[in-house]
Structures are given as C-alpha cells and as structure tokens.
C-alpha cells in the first residue's frame, strides 16, 4: 500500500520580523535575530515552509534573584549583581543570540526599585552586549506603567521586544513602544479569545500587527503545559489559515515556569535523582514539547538547558 500524501498547504503564514537595530539601521546592535515566517505546521511540509529557526532568549534579571535555587545560581554566581556582566556571560560563554532582561526588582514586593535603576540596567546591558534585547516588566500594572516607558526610551531605536501588555493595561506601553520603534509583547492568560482581543486593541492604537509577538502564558511540564501547548497550536493553525490577528510569532517563558516546579528545585529527595540535572531537565522537556506546538522565542534560564534545546533545534532543522 502506498504511503498517503498527507502534506497540507495553508493560505497564511506567521509574520516574520527582525529584532535588533544595527548601526546601518540606526541602532547599536552588532547582530540581529529574525523570527517567524512559518507557513506550515511544525514538522509539516518542506523545510522551506518551516520559516526561521526558533531562538532562545537567556534570562538576565535586573536585580540579584532572591528565590533561585543553588543549581540555577551556580553558573551565574560571579555576575548576579551586575546585569551587564551577566548578559555578557550569557552571550560570550553560553552563546546566547538574544537576551531577555526581566525587571523583577521593580515589583513593589520584590525591591520596588525605581525608573532610574531600570534605565541604568538597560543602558548597562546595551553597552555590555551586541545582541538584541527583550525588555520585560514585572507584571505589576502600576509599576510597569511608571517604569517601562522609561526603559523603552533608554533603548530607543534599538528595535527591542518590549512588554508585556495585557487586555487591561496596554495603552501607555503600546504608545511608547510605537514611538520608540520597538516590537511589542501582547500577553493573554492562557485564553485564545483574549489573545486575539489584545492584538486588536494594540492594532486599534495604530501599532502594526507585524511588530507584535504574542505571549499566551506558559505552563511547565506537570503544571499546565497541555493548556499552553493547545493554545499555541490553535494560534498557529489560525495564523496558517489566514487570521491576521493571530499571525504573530510566539514567545514562551520556559525558564521561570520550569524553575517554579518543585521537581526542578527541591534538593532533599535523592530518589528523584541529582538536583543539578533535574532543573535543567525540566526546562529542556518543557521547551522541546512546546517547540512542537509552534514557538519562535523561548526564554530559558540554565545554560545547560539552553545548550541542549539549541542542539535539539539544530538537529531537527538538519533533517
């Protein structure tokens, strides 16, 4: 019996966009990262349909992390107080093509640092590395509205990816990201309908759909990964079917979510195997699974996880 031809073709594709502005483009980045462009489901169709390779963004925190387990602190122990050095280490030692600066320390409950601090961190990281940046607020609406527009201004013209805006809080950051020439992250709480709505709202403010990356919220292995997977898959199918409000590349936060899992961080359970392997393994398993739903940027924390997931992506793309 002949093998049936199951390759499907689609009318739409995921938007393709390039993060980072080099000197010629009016910025100071020494490299850029292009994402998106898929015109078929993951592993469907030809390699040309697959679009750009998914890329890893390594997390750098604006302030010394307070709740990270030792396994995760270890690779960064000499740079935890300096976001610039931290970013440099990620790029030079661990090969990061993209850095995600997470402004954890501006949160009222986690240090309540001010805009001056955030600007300083942004400038420091821009100075220290030449790769494009993702600039991500703390999730507290009021504080993000105070600080993130200043962060946007400090990186003006660098074509960063900045966020995240939500259905209830999108106006100020959307306006400033538009003015400063950045890309925007729209965030939904694992809800495809809200995901579409927030894209429409940003677009209504004049923000080009082609400059949006969506964040559906992420669930780690054992902690809701199936919800994240199915929503991301649904978004990808909608994008391929020509829904322009859903044709954005997708970012997911594997690092933060994976290291929240007790299986990743508890150390007094020898029957679960060595803790130095478990955490990275949790990130790897989560990332590799979500990659199959259609993901364009993966935020990762541990360098071993970054290396393994990168290796996975490259091997799959060689076929």
């Amino acid at each position: 019996m002949p093998v049936p031809e199951i390759a499907e073709s689609f009318s739409g594709s995921v938007n393709r966009l390039t993060l980072g502005a080099t000197k010629e483009d009016g910025g100071t980045r020494t490299s850029t990262v292009t994402i998106g462009g898929a015109s078929n489901v993951v592993y469907g169709g030809s390699l040309a349909d697959a679009g750009e390779k998914p890329v890893i963004a390594m997390d750098v925190l604006d302030s010394k992390p307070e709740d990270w387990p030792d396994v995760l602190l270890e690779p960064y122990k000499d740079v935890l107080d300096s976001p610039g050095d931290w970013a440099k280490k990620c790029v030079e030692e661990f090969g990061a093509e993209l850095i995600c600066v997470k402004f954890e320390g501006i949160h009222p409950d986690k240090g309540d640092k001010d805009a001056a601090h955030a600007i300083k961190v942004t400038e420091e990281v821009l100075q220290a590395v030449g790769v494009p940046l993702v600039l991500w607020g703390c999730g507290n609406d009021e504080k993000d509205n105070q600080v993130m527009p200043k962060v946007s201004g400090a990186a003006k013209g660098e074509k960063c990816l900045i966020g995240a805006v939500t259905e209830d809080n999108y106006k100020s950051l959307t306006a400033i990201a538009l003015a400063d020439g950045h890309y925007l992250i729209t965030q939904a709480p694992l809800d495809i309908n809200i995901a579409k709505q927030i894209n429409i709202l940003a677009s209504d403010m004049g923000f080009p759909l082609e400059r949006i990356v969506t964040f559906q919220s992420t669930g780690a292995l054992g902690y809701g990964i199936e919800y994240a997977y199915s929503i991301q898959e649904r978004q990808r199918i909608a994008a391929l079917s020509g829904d322009k409000m859903m044709a954005m590349p997708v970012i997911c936060d594997v690092g933060y979510e994976s290291w929240r899992a007790k299986e990743a961080k508890i150390t007094d359970t020898p029957e679960w195997g060595p803790p130095e392997d478990r955490g990275p393994a949790w990130e790897i398993a989560t990332a590799v699974c979500l990659l199959q739903a259609g993901v364009d940027i993966i935020r990762i924390r541990h360098p071993r996880a970054a290396a393994t997931v990168n290796d996975f992506i490259n091997q799959v793309r060689q076929q």
Partner: peptide, 11 residues
C-alpha cells in the same frame, strides 16, 4: 472558522 474575540464584528 474564526477565533472569538470581543471585537469580532469590527475585525
């Protein structure tokens, strides 16, 4: 055939 959003008529 379309994903619901509150602005579905408009878009």
């Amino acid at each position: 055939k379309q994903i619901y959003s509150d602005s579905f008529l408009k878009v």
